[in-house]
Deep mutational scan, measured.
Amino acid sequence: MTEYKLVVVGAGGVGKSALTIQLIQNHFVDEYDPTIEDSYRKQVVIDGETCLLDILDTAGQEEYSAMRDQYMRTGEGFLCVFAINNTKSFEDIHHYREQIKRVKDSEDVPMVLVGNKCDLPSRTVDTKQAQDLARSYGIPFIETSAKTRQGVDDAFYTLVREIRKHKEKMSKDGKKKKKKSKTKCVIM
């Protein structure tokens, strides 16, 4: 069974824990209790493949930012979460993405942009803004509501699919490099 290491990042209060708990335990946590770091595991079937999701729910508070490099190193894919009623959390996505790329030393890291709290009427981040940002990053965008469960499975499952595509691409690139290195030079 394939294991996928997913990391949920975003500013404090955007609903990272609520999304994760909704996926794992099928219930909505409405009281806000700032996370330092929590880890969850769940076995699911995605596109006919049974897999184990190892999900790291991270601290959004700035005082825990020193811990970010460590979990970013171990993560295979990242859910970059903002709240649709919090423009600052949307603007912060850029910083999370840049930090992930720096730590992973790669421009090509599996990510999904997630606009959470889409059940709320007080939207300050337009869907088109988020779609445009995701398009500019070359990553999928999904709106979710941890409260109603809308888009929750889709967000995590899409990230797994992005990781699969990335692994497939990397193995193809690896095979191309191996083929090239088999060419021999004969000096007579």
Rank of each mutant, 00 (worst) to 15 (best):
D54K: 04
F156P: 04
D69P: 09
L19F: 05
E31T: 14
M188T: 09
K128C: 08
T124N: 08
E37W: 01
I100E: 02
P34M: 03
S122N: 14
V160M: 12
K16L: 00
V29I: 08
F156R: 00
S106V: 12
V160W: 08
D126L: 08
V14T: 13
N86M: 05
K88R: 11
S122D: 11
A146I: 01
A155K: 02
G115N: 09
M111Y: 02
R41P: 00
V186D: 15
G15H: 01
I84K: 13
D105A: 06
I187W: 15
Y64K: 02
E31L: 15
S39M: 15
D126A: 07
K117E: 12
E31K: 15
L23F: 14
S145A: 15
V7C: 06
K42P: 01
C80R: 01
Q25C: 06
R102V: 05
D153F: 05
N116A: 14
V8A: 09
V125Q: 12
Y71S: 15
I21N: 15
T158G: 06
D57M: 00
R41A: 04
C118Q: 05
T127S: 07
K172A: 14
C185D: 14
L159M: 12
V14C: 09
G174Y: 02
Q131A: 08
P110L: 03
R102F: 04
T127C: 08
L53Q: 07
H166S: 07
D154I: 06
E76S: 07
M188L: 05
D153W: 04
F90D: 07
L19N: 15
S39Y: 13
I55L: 07
V114F: 08
Y96F: 13
M111N: 02
D126C: 08
A130C: 12
L56R: 02
T124R: 08
K128P: 07
R73T: 11
A11R: 11
D33R: 01
L53P: 08
R102C: 15
F82D: 04
A83Q: 12
G13Q: 13
I187N: 15
E98V: 03
R102H: 11
Q131W: 08
R149L: 12
L6T: 15
Q25T: 07
M170V: 12
D33S: 03
V125Y: 09
F141I: 03
I55W: 01
M111W: 04
I46R: 14
G77R: 01
F78P: 02
I84C: 13
R102I: 07
L6C: 11
V109C: 08
L56F: 01
I24H: 02
Q70R: 07
I24W: 02
S106I: 10
R123M: 11
Q25G: 07
S89L: 02
Y157M: 06
A155Y: 13
T2G: 13
D154S: 06
D173I: 11
A66P: 04
A66K: 08
I24R: 01
H166R: 06
I36M: 01
V109H: 03
G12Q: 15
K184M: 02
E31I: 13
Q129F: 15
F82M: 09
E3P: 15
L159W: 03
T127N: 08
I24E: 01
L56Y: 00
C51G: 10
H166P: 04
K180S: 02
C51M: 11
L159Q: 03
K169N: 13
P121N: 13
F82N: 05
A11I: 14
Y4V: 13
I24Q: 03
R41C: 04
K104G: 12
F28G: 00
K16Y: 02
D153K: 07
G13L: 08
F141C: 08
K101A: 14
K147E: 06
T35C: 00
D132T: 05
V29D: 11
A134L: 15
D132A: 05
S106W: 13
V186S: 08
D30E: 12
A83R: 09
L120K: 08
I21Y: 02
D69T: 12
Q43P: 10
V152R: 12
R164T: 15
T183F: 02
I84N: 15
Q61H: 11
I46F: 11
G10W: 02
T20R: 00
G48Y: 08
E62D: 07
V29A: 10
P110T: 04
K184I: 00
T74I: 08
A59H: 00
H166Y: 06
C51R: 09
G138S: 05
V112L: 08
T35R: 00
V112P: 02
Q43R: 14
S17W: 00
T35H: 00
L6S: 15
V160H: 04
V114Y: 02
V29R: 06
L19Y: 04
T74D: 14
V152F: 10
I55F: 05
A130G: 05
M111S: 03
E31R: 15
R135D: 14
Y40R: 00
I55K: 00
S136Y: 09
D108I: 06
V125I: 09
C185Y: 04
K16W: 01
P34H: 01
V152H: 11
V160R: 14
G13F: 11
K42S: 07
D105V: 03
V125K: 09
N26I: 02
H27R: 10
L6K: 03
D30H: 15
Y157S: 07
E49C: 06
A155C: 14
S65Y: 09
K88I: 09
N85I: 14
G10V: 02
G77M: 05
V152W: 13
A146F: 00
Y32D: 01
A18R: 02
V81C: 07
K180L: 06
K177V: 11
V103F: 15
E168L: 07
V8Y: 01
G151S: 15
Q22H: 09
G15P: 01
V186G: 12
V125S: 10
N86E: 13
L53A: 14
V9M: 11
G13D: 10
T124Q: 09
L52H: 10
K169Q: 08
V160L: 08
A11V: 12
N86G: 11
S106N: 09
H27G: 08
M188Q: 14
F82K: 01
D105I: 14
H166C: 08
R68Y: 02
T158V: 07
I187M: 15
C51Y: 11
K176V: 14
F156M: 06
R97C: 15
V8P: 01
V7R: 14
Q131K: 07
P110N: 04
L113H: 04
N26G: 12
L6Y: 06
D69Q: 15
K169R: 07
Q70F: 07
R68P: 03
V114M: 05
D132F: 06
N26P: 01
V14M: 10
G75Q: 05
D119P: 07
P34A: 07
K175E: 13
K179E: 05
H166T: 10
D154N: 06
F141W: 05
S39C: 15
Y4H: 14
S17Q: 01
T35W: 00
K16Q: 00
R123I: 07
R149A: 10
A18Q: 15
R41G: 03
E162M: 09
K165R: 10
M67A: 03
I187L: 11
E49N: 12
G138V: 06
Q70Y: 08
Y137Q: 09
D153P: 06
G115L: 12
S39T: 01
S181T: 12
D30W: 10
K177Q: 11
Y4Q: 11
D30G: 12
E107G: 08
F90C: 03
I21A: 04
G10K: 05
N26K: 11
E162I: 07
L53F: 10
E37Y: 05
V186C: 07
R135L: 11
D57K: 00
C80L: 12
F78N: 03
K16N: 02
P34E: 03
K117R: 12
Y71C: 15
P34S: 03
K101D: 12
C51L: 13
I100P: 15
S65P: 06
K42G: 08
E3C: 09
L79I: 11
F78I: 04
A146S: 02
N26Q: 10
K172L: 06
G13Y: 09
T2Y: 13
E3A: 13
E98C: 11
T35M: 00
S136Q: 12
T124H: 08
D38T: 00
E162P: 15
V44K: 09
R123W: 06
G60S: 03
K176C: 07
D132Q: 05
D38R: 00
S122P: 08
I36R: 00
M111P: 01
V103R: 11
Q25A: 04
I139K: 03
D132K: 07
